[in-house]
């Protein structure tokens, strides 16, 4: 397997705070890789650096062999990377369907500005109305894929929390990425719901032939789903390996359980 993404010596400082320090790792094509670590370890910051939301202080991000470090987010999205957000960021006043259509525009621009302004006459069918109609059909495909096809016309902020997370995934999928980043997709879900989500993610990954990189605190989900794990603590690499190796790694256990670890051992 070749690498979908190579991260080399990635660092990020915010004023005095070192959020990410000298991280180096690969994400292999077609795998589900997980990044775990305690709160504030720098996981989301890694996502933000990959997707161009923040500019790295040092280091490079290589995607499918090309250096994408420091590019604008929309340019990076065009290369085939999509993500969801830890603190849900939907277009609240748009319907679930329109949230997905917004993302579809990237690969399916159905008409140009002049056509939009001049050709959309009342009561007369035309390119614009046809384009919108076909976008709606495409969008339904992605809504149904995450299982919220029946919620298409509901305003995003009126959806229950768990479905908002799924809508974010649908919106990201509509960008037709090859690498999908999921920031705590199961946050706020109970163990049963999060295992359902794990199955859904696996299913989508196979169906769309995706590489997935995810942040998650639900360890059962991580262990079930991920092929490979990367552990950070205080912005630095703590460990890397298969879920089984990570579970047996004393440094990881210590970082997660803190002082309690020694008690647990004795």
């Amino acid at each position: 397997m070749t690498a979908a993404m190579e991260i080399k010596n990635l660092s990020k400082n915010f004023g005095g705070i070192v959020a990410v320090e000298d991280l180096t790792f690969d994400i292999k094509k077609g795998e589900i890789m997980g990044i775990i670590g305690p709160n504030g370890a720098g996981k989301t910051t890694v996502f933000n650096l990959i997707t161009g939301v923040y500019k790295p202080t040092a280091g490079t991000v290589i995607f499918e062999g090309k250096d994408i470090t420091g590019q604008a987010p929309d340019a990076i999205v065009r290369k085939g990377i999509a993500r969801t957000f830890q603190n849900i960021r939907l277009f609240k006043h748009l319907s679930a369907l329109d949230n997905v259509i917004t993302a579809l525009d990237l690969n399916y621009p159905m008409y140009n500005l002049a056509e939009a302004i001049a050709l959309n006459l009342p009561f007369i069918p035309g390119k614009v109305k046809r384009g919108e109609k076909s976008l709606q059909e495409k969008a339904m495909f992605f809504l149904e894929m995450v299982g919220i096809g029946d919620k298409a016309n509901i305003r995003a902020d009126a959806l229950p929390y768990g479905l908002q997370r799924k809508l974010e995934i649908a919106r990201a999928l509509a960008l037709e990425p090859t690498l999908l980043l999921l920031d705590e997709p199961a946050a706020g879900m109970n163990p049963e719901e999060s295992m359902d989500l794990a199955r859904l993610i696996k299913q989508i990954q196979i169906k769309l032939n995706l590489t997935v990189f995810l942040i998650e605190h639900h360890m059962d989900l991580v262990m079930e789903l991920c092929d490979h794990l990367f552990v950070v603590n205080f912005g630095r690499e703590l460990a890397e390996g298969s879920p089984a190796e990570i579970q047996a790694n004393p440094a990881v256990l210590k970082a997660y359980l803190g002082e309690g670890y020694k008690h647990a051992q004795s």
């Binding site: 997707t51 987010p73 929309d74 277009f91 525009d105 919106r171 960008l175």
Partner: peptide, 8 residues
């Protein structure tokens, strides 16, 4: 931010 990440 989300708009940018939707390729806008």
């Amino acid at each position: 931010v989300a708009a940018e990440m939707a390729g806008i």
